[in-house]
Design a protein around this nucleic acid. Structure first.
Length: 331
DNA sequence: CGAGGTACCTGACAGC
DNA sequence: TGCTGTCAGGTACCTC
């Protein structure tokens, strides 16, 4: 789903809503979303009683550090999104407040026969975590809400429960590329990452960073730079006036610098505007983001480039659509 | 090793 | 209206 700005917006929302709360139970109608441990019963048993100590983001993963040395990892993939709220419950889960899940853009309400919710449920809600009472205040902004839910039309999202140490030392976690908004992500590091200097950890080299790839595909590779997907790669390339098909090895120093600045610029704009929402991303309260106002090329095929008026083109490669201005971003 | 395809899923929309 | 094909924010895995 969401790319870095959307995931960051979600994390920010979660921090003010569910930090310091304790998981008391979990329900799911699509247990395959829980990848670790694979047995849902085991997952349920292990997460009960764990308190949320810290919430942060690495690439597009949301990580909840829990008590007793555990960590919950959630990746929303294409269409997943997390929501905090309350829905009417059957026994033995106690009584919640009025149902309010139509906030999900795909909101399709259907009667259900199984699960803890009364009568109706948004059919795209596949996992619901039940939280204990809030520490003190119970506010209208959802701070005291008792549930954290994952809605996902396509069911691609994944949820994993790890021992924190094990997660931090895992190969999957360590092969992720640098965080583009970190202070440590300097221009020098960006250049090295794309050009794949030997000083980089093996994982970056294995990712094929900076060799013969088309610049757009390289930017989207999570092992090269974390958090950039189809939208923001298209946008950053437009700002840098670089053709998405250009091979990274052909980029001149000036272009690399422009690209580096543009990546930061579009990601920061994305965060400031709370993400994009022309499709189905919403924040934890179900509100839309406003990146649309800043969107220059993504999904604007056949419209005019706001810089030069040339008609924007779409090309498909690497299984994804690239949108660009054939004039400003000529090869 | 790299490029490319497939798999995981469902819904929206265009065209006939 | 209804059928068919294409497309969708991601990433892991497989084959050639």
């Amino acid at each position: 789903m969401p790319e870095l700005p959307e995931v960051q917006t979600t994390v920010n929302g979660l921090r003010s809503r569910v930090l310091k709360r304790t998981f008391v139970d979990v329900w799911s109608d699509w247990e395959k979303i829980i990848k670790k441990p694979k047995d849902f019963k085991v997952f349920k048993k292990e997460i009960k009683g764990k308190k949320i100590i810290k919430i942060w983001r690495r690439a597009k993963n949301i990580i909840f550090n829990l008590s007793e040395g555990y960590s919950l990892l959630i990746h929303q993939k294409m269409t997943g999104h997390l929501m905090v709220g309350e829905w009417k419950l059957k026994k033995p889960f106690g009584v919640g407040h009025s149902a309010e899940l139509s906030r999900s853009p795909q909101g399709k309400w259907q009667p259900i026969k199984k699960g803890p919710l009364e009568e109706k449920i948004n059919t795209f809600l596949h996992v619901i975590f039940f939280l204990d009472n809030p520490p003190s205040h119970k506010a209208s902004n959802g701070q005291g809400a008792k549930m954290l839910a994952l809605s996902d039309v396509r069911k691609f999202a994944k949820i994993e429960l790890w021992k924190t140490e094990e997660l931090l030392n895992s190969e999957d976690f360590n092969k992720l590329g640098p965080e583009p908004l970190d202070k440590s992500f300097t221009f020098k590091k960006f250049k090295e990452t794309l050009q794949c200097k030997k000083s980089l950890p093996p994982a970056y080299r294995q990712a094929g960073a900076g060799r013969q790839g088309k610049v757009k595909q390289v930017l989207m590779n999570p092992e090269v730079i974390a958090g950039i997907g189809n939208i923001y790669s298209n946008e950053a390339l437009w700002w840098s006036k670089i053709n998405p098909q250009k091979n990274v090895s052909e980029l001149k120093l000036k272009e690399l610098k422009l690209l580096y600045d543009s990546i930061k610029k579009v990601l920061l704009a994305g965060i400031r505007l709370r993400g994009e929402s022309f499709s189905d991303y919403r924040d934890v309260d179900g509100k839309k983001g406003h990146f649309d106002e800043e969107r220059k090329v993504y999904k604007r095929e056949k419209e005019k480039c706001s810089r030069c008026g040339t008609v924007i083109k779409r090309l498909k490669f690497g299984g994804r659509s690239a949108f660009f201005c054939p004039n400003c971003q000529g090869l």
